[in-house]
């Protein structure tokens, strides 16, 4: 049973509350619509991302395979020496995109410089391959990360909206209605009391 608000039962309050009920109901409907739309978008995106993720994971495992070969060629320290200094630079820009009041980040990756920055004598061609694959994969990986972050933010937004919808539906609107009923009853009671008082006074006056 919703709790009624602790307000003075007068007409002023009643009309104010009645207005609030209308506003709350409209808000509830709007939020409900937003939630539905969000959920629809979320599901679509989640399905899309799952495919993207699976695809990237397959490619990543391919990268790891060629890297595994490069790594097995020589001592780990020799490999690490080869990769100690890189002549490549990786820049990243961040922008935000607004989807239904959710700010989804968008990254723009740029790789500059030359990839080949290690000796050829003690590294293998598999290292070239794996580094190349990794560097081709990197922008897509970051894209995936951005999309997944967006998905997470959307989920949070859905959660928030649902909480609001629920609060409106189960707490605020019932308690408003309860209070309106209470005030109406109270006012009716007062009216009846006033009426009976008047009748009583009228009787006394007539008997004199």
């Amino acid at each position: 049973m919703a709790k009624r608000l602790n307000v003075n039962p007068n007409r002023m309050e009643l009309s104010r509350l009645k207005k609030r009920v209308v506003v709350a109901k409209r808000g509830h409907k709007l939020l409900k619509d937003k939630q539905d739309a969000l959920i629809k978008a979320f599901l679509e995106k989640a399905r899309e991302l799952k495919e993207l993720r699976e695809e990237l994971e397959a490619e990543l495992s391919l990268c790891y395979q060629s890297f595994l070969l490069a790594r097995a060629q020589t001592l780990p320290v020799v490999l690490e020496q080869a990769l100690m200094i890189s002549s490549m630079r990786c820049c990243i820009d961040v922008r935000e995109r607004n989807v239904m009041s959710v700010l989804i980040p968008e990254y723009n990756v740029r790789q500059e410089g030359e990839g080949l920055s290690y000796g050829l004598a003690n590294t293998s061609a598999s290292l070239d391959l794996s580094l190349e694959r990794f560097s081709a994969l990197l922008p897509r990986l970051i894209h995936l990360a951005a999309e997944e972050k967006g998905l997470k933010l959307m989920a949070k937004e859905i959660e928030k909206t649902r909480r609001r919808v629920n609060a409106l539906e189960h707490v605020l609107i019932p308690s408003f209605q309860e209070t309106v009923r209470y005030i109406t009853m109270k006012l009716d009671e007062q009216e009846r009391a006033g009426l009976s008082r008047l009748m009583r006074i009228k009787e006394i006056v007539r008997s004199h």
Binding site: I85, S87, E114, L116, S117, Y118, G119, L120, A121, N122
Partner: peptide, 11 residues
């Protein structure tokens, strides 16, 4: 800062 050239010379 041409690392490749340095590596090449040492190799």
């Amino acid at each position: 800062g041409d690392l490749l050239e340095i590596e090449r010379r040492i190799d």
